[in-house]
Design a binder for these strands. Structure first.
Length: 127
DNA sequence: ACTGTGACTTTCA
DNA sequence: ATGAAAGCCACAG
């Protein structure tokens, strides 16, 4: 059952591990986890802005960190990062990545206008 | 420890 | 509508 999971006491009582990720998996800061959790809360067929995600994560005003956290997401992560766009309803990713995100959103029913923008009034978070 | 950078937001002109 | 400035914080060098 535990399979050598009790390795927390390693010298100092530092719950903060920075060894990349040994075996457990807990290596990222709680802030990132909150951000990822908030993104997962975004319902399918809807998009949220970085500011909204930050707020859902309990980090009002830290929209920038949301972008950084999503950028740090590994490929194939279960986090629907594509549902996060900027406050203008536009994709903040550079060229190629933007098209990739746009395709994913379109697959979820999100519509884009000629300028490549999303109507947050329709596809934004309810409320 | 310090500096620069960034998938940002909001406000003001 | 566009643009600049300030605010915000984590990570990398």
């Amino acid at each position: 059952m535990k399979s050598a999971g009790s390795r927390a006491s390693r010298g100092r009582g530092a719950p903060r591990k920075k060894d990349g990720e040994a075996e457990g998996a807990v290596s990222v800061s709680p802030t990132y986890l909150e951000i990822y959790a908030a993104v997962e809360r975004v319902p399918c067929g809807c998009v949220a802005t970085y500011g909204q995600v930050a707020r859902l994560a309990g980090l009002p005003g830290r929209a920038r960190q949301v972008g950084y956290a999503l950028h740090a997401l590994p490929p194939g992560s279960p986090i629907p990062w594509q549902r996060v766009v900027n406050a203008r309803g536009e994709i903040s990713l550079p060229g190629a990545s933007a098209e990739r995100q746009r395709r994913l959103l379109r697959a979820e029913g999100i519509e884009f206008d000629e300028r490549g923008r999303i109507n947050l009034r329709r596809f934004g978070l309810p409320g």
